[in-house]
Structure formats: C-alpha cells, structure tokens
C-alpha cells in the first residue's frame, strides 16, 4: 500500500492505495466520483478523461500513485456555481445523445479551448481525436465547441 494525497474537485483526500489502482477506479470506487466513466482497456476511447494539474489525461491510464500530490478536476467539479460554458454549449447544440462519452468529451474540449481559444473546425476535430463518441457523428460536438469558443450558451 502506498500513501497518497490528491485534491479532487477542490477537496483534499489522503488515502492508502495499492500501486496498481488506476486513477479512474480511485475516483469512482474510493471517492464515489462516478461521473467519470470507463469505456475501454487501451486508452483509446477517452471516456475517462479528467484534468490532472490543469491538463487533460485519461484516468484509466494513470495510476493513482502517479497522481499523488496532484490536483484533479472531474466533470463533477467543472461547474463553478453555474455550468461551464462548454457544458451549456453541449446541451444547446445537442452535442450528446446517450451521454456516456460526454464527461470525457467535455473535459477534452475544455482542455482544447484552454490551449487554443479560437480553434478552426479542423483543429477541434484533431483536438478531440482521442475521445470516441458512437452516437452523434461528432458534428454537434464540433458545433458545441465552436459555440463555447465564441462566448457560448448560458
């Protein structure tokens, strides 16, 4: 067991974990942060995307011990009183259907806009290449990111 200390959505947690514990399972099973989901075994789908120290990461491919001392933001901590503009834009543009990829897709989109506040359509598509959606065909996801970039829906 290894001692870790992680801040998740603004709250600090001290825990003892097995070294093999994946960050996503730490979030879901220890902390009850089930808004972040698991969609694959190979880091392809991006459903588990969260922010670690301000950058998007796939929480299924990070060990909890690697995140020791880190600051994690999940979909559940993204709204600050009111929804983040990207969350609002996803609803406004119908950028989700079943919603399973949505937490990861939104976290990836927030990261994308942090690095490139005015992306072209191609840049949005490339920037989301690590997040798979089986429902939307991505067109309304792209629209949502564009809307959020333009100042967005509220």
């Amino acid at each position: 067991m290894v001692k870790i200390s992680i801040t998740v959505d603004g709250e600090r947690h001290e825990d003892e974990v097995e070294p093999r514990l994946l960050l996503v399972h730490y979030l879901r099973e220890r902390l009850g942060k089930v808004g972040t989901v698991v969609g694959c075994d190979t880091s392809n789908c991006g459903a588990c995307t969260v922010h670690l120290d301000g950058n998007s990461v796939k929480a299924c491919s990070v060990l909890a011990v690697q995140a020791d001392g880190g600051d994690v933001t999940t979909i559940e901590g993204l709204a600050n009183g009111e929804w983040h503009p990207v969350q609002a834009a996803f609803k406004e543009c119908h950028g989700l259907q079943c919603g399973y990829c949505t937490p990861g897709m939104i976290m990836a989109a927030v990261d994308l806009l942090a690095n490139n506040p005015a992306p072209s359509e191609d840049e949005i598509r490339e920037g989301l290449e690590g997040n798979l959606c089986r429902c939307t065909g991505y067109q309304n996801i792209v629209k949502a990111v564009q809307l959020a970039a333009e100042g967005g829906a509220r």
């Binding site: 880091s43 991006g46 995307t49 670690l52 950058n55 998007s56 990461v57 796939k58 491919s61 990070v62 990836a108 990261d111 994308l112 690095n115 920037g127 290449e129 690590g130 997040n131």
Partner: peptide
C-alpha cells in the same frame, strides 16, 4: 503521436 490527453502524460 496519439492524442492530446496521451501527449500530456
């Protein structure tokens, strides 16, 4: 290489 989230790690 891969995608932005993977490139962060």
């Amino acid at each position: 290489v891969a995608d932005p989230a993977v490139r962060h790690r």
